[in-house]
Amino acid sequence: MVTDLANASPDTLIDLGEISTQAPPGPPRPEVGQASEAHPDSAGEVVFHISALDFYYGDFRAVRDVSVDVEGNEITAVIGPSGCGKSTFIRCLNRMNDLVPGARVEGRIEYHGQDLYGPDVDPIEVRRHIGMVFQKPNPFPKSIYDNVAFGPRVNGIKADMDDLVEESLHRAALWDEVKGKLKQSAFSLSGGQQQRLCIARCIAIRPDVILMDEPCSALDPLATNRIEELMTELKREYTIVIVTHNMQQAARVSDRTAFFTTEVNEQSQRTGVLVEVDRTEKIFTAPTDQRTEDYITGRFG
């Protein structure tokens, strides 16, 4: 998608002003109604409105009846025991599950009011607005520079690539560590640096939302700490949904927490269900559901 300043939406322009005067124009947000015109950012705005979401792998229902709103410029944490469908759930949000043969979604996910699974929605375009960081750092076998430049290049973003790479690495708090070796292989970086590179790569396509699927599970505590600081920094400009196994992490960084658990039916098939979602303080201090309380106090899971 190629954009010039003339048809960039107002929010993008204001956004640019804060970042840097050299920053290239980003693409406009997708058609989202009046909301995005009124606010420079989407704070308090509902970014995802998910209702009665069921997810199937073939005939097997992996996630059942999830209804939740994700608000803009917040970090929403998704917690729960292994196999409860947390990752499956967030992969519905950028349509990564479309890549799995036999995967099927029922129910509705609205992204800024638009049906994410509508017939005229292109999943490629969805992923362009809703970025994703994976569990294990997965840099491309290319230079640090080319890793960051890949997204803008495939999306046809016309910008001064050097500036865009520098800015993205700055925002991912990696610039100072790599500025002298941009042409070196991304594999020369440590695990934590690789993960921040993946975040920079994601930021470079100027997404609206960043999905993180257990981004720190392969990292040591120091690297984890850096990513958590970074997330708090990033939520000023992005909406973040993070899946985590680590309840302390959810408590430290997130604004809202959704707790998923597993239901086992008569055929001993395991289906993920959303138990409750609320402000993080509330979930960790006064959960309404007994299952949540059991999980966070360590009696289960």
């Binding site: 950028n94 990564m96 890549l99 490629i124 375009e125 992923r127 362009r128 970025g131 994703m132 994976f134 294990k136 997965n138 840099p139 491309f140 076998p141 890949f150 997204g151 495939v154 999306n155 993946c198 790569r201 994601c202 396509i205």
Partner: peptide, 12 residues
Amino acid sequence: SIRLGAFALGAT
């Protein structure tokens, strides 16, 4: 993971 990484960045 390389393919998923590219797809997640909006690559066709």
